Deep mutational scan, measured.
Amino acid sequence: HNLTITQGKLFFHYNPKLCLSEIHKMEEVSGTKGRQERNDIALKTNGDQASCENELLKFSYIRTSFDKILLRWEPYWPPDFRDLLGFMLFYKEAPYQNVTEFDGQDACGSNSWTVVDIDPPLRSNDPKSQNHPGWLMRGLKPWTQYAIFVKTLVTFSDERRTYGAKSDIIYVQTDATNPSVPLDPISVSNSSSQIILKWKPPSDPNGNITHYLVFWERQAEDSELFELDYCLKGLKLPSRTWSPPFESEDSQKHNQSEYEDSAGECCSCPKTDSQILKELEESSFRKTFEDYLHNVVFVPRKTSSGTGAEDPRPSRKRRSLGDVGNVTVAVPTVAAFPNTSSTSVPTSPEEHRPFEKVVNKESLVISGLRHFTGYRIELQACNQDTPEERCSVAAYVSARTMPEAKADDIVGPVTHEIFENNVVHLMWQEPKEPNGLIVLYEVSYRRYGDEELHLCVSRKHFALERGCRLRGLSPGNYSVRIRATSLAGNGSWTEPTYFYVTDYLDVPSNIA
């Protein structure tokens, strides 16, 4: 807008934040220059609390790290170098490059900038070799853009010569660093050979998330399962459950009422301010606690030095998902009996873990797994792929695949051998790939016309006998059925096997 004052003059007093240069501009645009008398524009009460600059400061050096910015700028000295009290560095987070010096300023003089007072450097006698002032900004957020400017702080001049310097606002972004852990990993099994893994992005990506790394490792069953005799009275049979499938998407929606109208769909109840505040506090606490764990609990591995020492970490090797089922080394339970199943799973520490690289999504279907087997899954978020990966501390989750139908069934015939004193040795093959492992066998036998009897055969007993022995049988026709019990439950009964026990007292003698 054009402003013209045809008559009258300007009068400025007691404006401590208004620089004289701005008042002189007002004289020019209003056409009143030359009308004012000496005392109409006070030299001592206008701009006496402001830094009124008329020179431009330029930054000469900028260096960044993930949490620091090192700045240096060209030296500046007023005509009387004693008038320079120091520099004021202003900075704040700036997602967009549209910041002005006066953003967030209120009537009390406060604003949204963080201000650092910096002492002037030592003055050199040689004007050509003056030290460049600077400042190291610490405690910054990774991968965050900051708006920065600097200006001088000078003393009051009796001659009211307006001098000083100020830089333009520059924008500097800190470097990326390792992201925080992925949030809320959930693993479920939808079949006997697959596990579905879902997660949420890290709360602090500290860069642009480029991919996720998912490692999985087959877990050995508890050692007590191999040692305890679950045929003993009072000892509860062990059981394991597989990871249940995901709930429906509708039930997972946030901010939804727990109660549904019987007449149909209901609208979600909005969260109160107290609920939102509580969630923010919980989120802040979780982030602080995660940072504490990362800094205190997890110790970084030592990389190899120039002395030739090897990095103890196993090298990563990509495998196809079809090879995942046989990740671990199978060892027989008892070496003397080769027909026992290889369900003991000690994992070799030198073995390469299978892994998958996930790009542009937060889910993965891990296939080719062994049925009813526990897996430990390790999830890392990465925001750099080359020249070397920059990934987060791992988040861990466990899951067990679903049982395989008929995996616990005894394959092959049940054979028998009759000894003296009416002892019958029953023999059968253990299931080759049971659900988890076989903890015991149930032997059901009966003599024709009598009630059915049951015998429990422990895992250890089966390994020693290759089956079991029935003792003290009365003469007669017998039928026997056997079924295995694994961590997933009972298998199917075998087809009945028949044998006849004679009275050993009636056996004919070869003595003449």
Score class of each variant (00 low, 15 high):
Y292C: 00
T340R: 13
F337I: 12
S305K: 15
Q384S: 11
F337S: 12
D291S: 03
E282R: 04
A309V: 11
E362T: 12
S344R: 12
D408S: 07
S444Y: 14
Y396R: 04
R400V: 05
H211S: 05
E350Q: 09
Y396L: 04
E417Y: 06
R218T: 09
P338Q: 12
E420Q: 03
S444A: 08
S248R: 12
L277T: 02
V331W: 04
A394P: 08
E378R: 08
N490M: 15
S203Q: 13
G308W: 05
L232Q: 07
S479M: 04
P332C: 10
S398K: 12
L321M: 12
W242K: 08
V424A: 05
T401M: 03
D506I: 10
N295M: 13
G322I: 12
E404V: 14
K287E: 02
F246H: 15
G234M: 12
H352N: 15
T288N: 04
P403Y: 03
S315P: 10
E351A: 12
E404R: 13
N326T: 05
G325Q: 14
N435V: 01
R313K: 14
A220S: 13
D291A: 02
N477F: 09
V329Q: 06
L453G: 03
W493S: 06
R390C: 07
C468S: 10
F285Y: 06
Q380H: 15
L487W: 14
P475Q: 12
G308V: 14
A399F: 02
R390H: 07
L321E: 10
L453V: 12
L237V: 07
A405F: 15
S243V: 11
P312V: 07
N295T: 04
Q384T: 06
H352Y: 13
P238A: 03
D273M: 06
N421D: 15
R376M: 07
Y292Q: 01
A488L: 07
E227D: 08
K253V: 02
E452S: 06
K287I: 02
P244N: 13
L473D: 00
V334E: 07
L237W: 11
H461R: 10
F355G: 12
G306L: 14
R481Y: 10
V297Q: 09
R286Q: 02
D222A: 11
S344Y: 09
V365T: 05
A381V: 04
F419C: 13
F215L: 10
S474V: 13
T386R: 08
E282C: 01
V439D: 03
E362H: 15
G436V: 05
T415N: 01
S257N: 10
D503F: 11
T272I: 04
K302Y: 14
V329Y: 15
P387F: 06
N435M: 00
A335I: 12
H425P: 02
V423L: 07
T485W: 13
P354K: 13
S305L: 11
L487T: 06
T485M: 14
D291H: 02
E290I: 02
R466I: 07
P349M: 04
E224R: 09
K317S: 11
P245L: 13
S223T: 12
P270K: 12
E249K: 13
L379V: 08
N326H: 12
D273A: 07
L487F: 14
K317A: 12
G308C: 14
W428V: 01
K317L: 14
H254M: 12
R400Q: 04
V397N: 13
Y259D: 08
E221L: 11
G374L: 10
N295F: 02
N360R: 11
E258D: 11
N435R: 01
P238W: 12
N422E: 07
I438C: 07
H454D: 14
S284E: 14
C269I: 04
G374W: 12
N490L: 15
C266R: 09
I276D: 01
G472Y: 13
T210Y: 05
I418A: 11
L379Y: 06
D273Y: 11
R313V: 10
N206T: 01
V296T: 07
Y448D: 10
V501P: 02
F499W: 08
Y292G: 03
V214D: 00
D261S: 10
P300I: 12
S342K: 15
C456Q: 01
Y259T: 12
I418S: 09
K361A: 12
S444N: 01
R240V: 05
K236M: 08
A394Q: 13
T343S: 09
P349S: 07
F462Q: 13
L440Y: 12
V507I: 15
P332Y: 04
S239A: 07
N421A: 10
S239H: 10
P496G: 14
K317H: 11
V480Q: 05
R376A: 04
V358P: 12
P434F: 06
E247L: 12
S367W: 12
S341V: 13
C382Q: 01
S262H: 12
T288R: 07
V443N: 01
T333F: 03
E495W: 07
T210L: 08
G264V: 05
N477E: 06
N360M: 09
T502D: 07
W216L: 12
E389I: 11
Y230N: 07
S239R: 14
R370M: 06
G306S: 12
L455T: 09
F337E: 12
S492K: 02
Q429G: 09
E217S: 12
L440T: 03
S398F: 07
E282F: 07
R301K: 06
R301C: 10
E249Y: 06
A512V: 07
T502G: 09
F285E: 02
E442R: 01
P338T: 10
D229M: 10
E362Y: 09
D204S: 06
F298L: 15
A395Y: 14
H461D: 04
T502F: 09
S239W: 14
R286G: 03
V324M: 07
K233M: 12
S458E: 08
A263S: 12
R240M: 06
T386N: 15
T373R: 04
D385V: 12
P300C: 12
H352I: 07
G476E: 01
V424K: 02
T343V: 11
D229N: 14
S479Y: 12
L453Y: 15
P349K: 07
S398R: 11
S398G: 04
F226V: 13
T497C: 15
V324Q: 06
E351T: 13
R459F: 10
S203A: 10
K406E: 10
A336Q: 15
Q252V: 11
G472H: 11
K271Y: 04
D323F: 03
P496C: 09
R481S: 06
T288I: 15
F355N: 14
D323S: 07
S479F: 05
Y230C: 14
I366R: 13
L487I: 08
G325T: 15
L487E: 06
T328S: 12
S509V: 15
P270M: 04
T415W: 01
I366W: 03
I366F: 15
F285T: 02
G234R: 05
K432Q: 03
S262D: 11
P312N: 10
E465F: 14
Y441L: 01
P300V: 10
T386W: 15
L277P: 04
Y212F: 09
E290L: 01
V327H: 09
Q219M: 03
F372I: 04
R446S: 00
K271P: 04
D311G: 06
S486V: 01
A395M: 11
E227G: 13
L321D: 02
W493L: 06
P245S: 11
V359S: 12
N421V: 13
E442K: 04
A381W: 00
Q256K: 12
C231P: 01
P332W: 05
A394V: 12
E442S: 06
K271R: 09
S274W: 10
N383G: 14
L232G: 13
P300W: 05
K287F: 02
T272K: 07
F337Q: 06
A263C: 09
I276P: 02
T272Y: 02
S239G: 14
S262E: 03
R313P: 12
L453E: 06
S315Q: 07
R390F: 04
L440M: 02
E282S: 05
A399Q: 03
L232Y: 09
V457Q: 12
E388D: 06
I209C: 15
H461I: 10
A335H: 10
V345P: 08
E451Q: 14
A395V: 13
E452K: 08
S367E: 12
P346K: 07
I377D: 01
S284W: 07
E279D: 03
V331I: 08
V457E: 04
V439M: 05
Y375E: 00
E249V: 10
L437P: 09
A463P: 06
V414W: 02
R469K: 06
T386V: 12
V327Y: 10
H352S: 08
D450H: 08
V329T: 09
S474N: 11
L280F: 13
N422A: 15
R446W: 03
L379G: 01
P205M: 12
T210H: 15
T307G: 09
N326I: 08
S392M: 00
V439L: 10
L277S: 05
K233R: 10
T241Q: 09
Y396W: 06
D222I: 11
G325V: 09
L379M: 08
G449E: 15
F215T: 05
R390K: 11
P496S: 06
Y500P: 08
K361L: 09
C231L: 01
P475V: 09
E451L: 12
